[in-house]
């Protein structure tokens, strides 16, 4: 892949505490995610999967290293710029509680656009289009507690990609779903990446990781393995694992 990566992590590390209570949540790692690519991150509990994702999305600041999203270095950007970047470039999907209960499905999708100052009407039109694309047009005016878990997660994915956002960070998006619904949600995510988005999927189920182009294995904050879905022996970014 010769295109510019949407997400570029360089020597990214995160340490909690200091001295005897020091915990290395993530040891220095490099990772690029290109447009149209879906990367799965796997590993046992406490391996640093979620830390990787929160750092990539600018929800947490690294101890060292850089995070570059669409050419902007999050580690040097102001808090406000990082928030703006989340509105315009990064989309999050969590395991549950993804949607704001006080807003309808359409309003949830329109939220980042509205926060960004887009007129409510235009934001809603975009949201409806996104829902339609997901085959969810009929739930537009329902509240999160009135729709199923699968519909909620698909709405969350739609929200994560509304506007010009090209980076989806999904943290166990299928964790609270049955396997069939989980597969359908993953299908949607895969389709969005095929359409040009870049995605990171944190999961501990190999079944779901199979939807990714690449799988990164973490243990104790370190990348222990990276495999192509098609060719497990090839490492895309040499030097990252060791």
């Amino acid at each position: 892949m010769t295109a510019t990566p949407v997400l570029q992590l360089r020597q990214l590390a995160r340490t909690h505490g200091s001295g005897p209570t020091e915990v290395h949540a993530l040891r220095p790692l490099d990772l690029d995610v290109f447009p149209g690519e879906l990367v799965a991150v796997m590993g046992p509990s406490g391996s640093g999967k979620s830390t990787l994702l929160t750092l990539a999305g600018g929800l947490d600041a690294p101890t060292s290293g850089t995070v570059t999203v669409e050419g902007t270095d999050l580690t040097t950007a102001s808090r406000r710029d990082v928030a703006a970047l989340r509105r315009r470039a990064i989309g999050y999907v969590f395991q549950d509680y993804n949607l704001i209960p006080a807003l309808t499905a359409a309003e949830n999708i329109a939220l980042p656009r509205e926060l960004d100052g887009i007129r409510a009407k235009k934001a809603r039109t975009e949201a409806l289009a996104a829902l339609d694309e997901m085959g969810l047009a009929d739930i537009a005016d329902r509240f999160p507690d009135e729709i199923s878990g699968g519909q909620q997660q698909r709405t969350a994915i739609a929200r994560a990609l509304v506007g010009d956002r090209r980076l989806v960070l999904a943290d166990e998006p299928t964790g609270a779903l049955d396997s069939e619904t989980g597969e359908s949600v993953l299908a949607v995510l895969r389709a969005r990446c095929d359409a040009g988005a870049a995605g990171i999927l944190v999961t501990h189920e190999p079944r779901f990781a199979a939807w990714a182009d690449r799988v990164v294995f973490l243990r104790d904050g370190e990348v222990v393995d990276q495999t192509l879905r098609s060719d497990a022996s090839a490492l895309l970014t040499p030097g990252a694992a060791q």
Binding site: R79, A83, R86, R87, F94, Y97, A102
Partner: peptide, 16 residues
Amino acid sequence: RRQLGLLGAQGGDRRH
């Protein structure tokens, strides 16, 4: 809190 966190994750800054 969770809701406000989600808002933050969607790009809401302190002002929002």
